[in-house]
Simulated scan of single mutants.
Amino acid sequence: MSYDDSCPVCRTAEIVCGKWTLLIIRDLAEGRSRFCELERSLKGISPRTLSLRLRALEEEGIVERQTFPEVPPRVEYALTEKGLALVPLIEDMRSYGRRWLGADGECTPASGEAELVVPAPPAAAAA
Rank of each mutant, 00 (worst) to 15 (best):
S2G: 10
D4Y: 07
D4W: 09
S6D: 11
S6G: 04
C7I: 06
C7N: 15
V9E: 08
R11K: 14
R11M: 09
R11S: 07
E14R: 10
C17R: 03
K19G: 10
T21F: 06
T21W: 03
L23W: 02
E30W: 06
E30I: 05
G31F: 14
R32M: 12
R34M: 15
R40L: 09
S41N: 05
S41E: 03
G44V: 04
S46P: 02
P47C: 08
L50D: 03
A56I: 01
G61H: 04
V63M: 03
E64Y: 03
R65M: 10
Q66A: 07
V71D: 13
V71F: 10
P72E: 11
P72M: 12
V75G: 01
Y77I: 02
L79G: 00
E81N: 09
K82Y: 04
K82A: 13
K82T: 12
K82N: 12
G83V: 03
L86A: 01
L86N: 00
P88H: 05
L89N: 04
I90M: 02
E91T: 09
E91C: 09
D92Q: 15
M93C: 11
M93A: 14
R94Q: 11
R94F: 11
S95C: 15
G97C: 09
R98A: 14
R99F: 12
W100T: 10
L101M: 15
G102S: 07
A103L: 15
A103Q: 14
E106A: 13
C107S: 13
P121A: 14
A123N: 14
A127W: 08
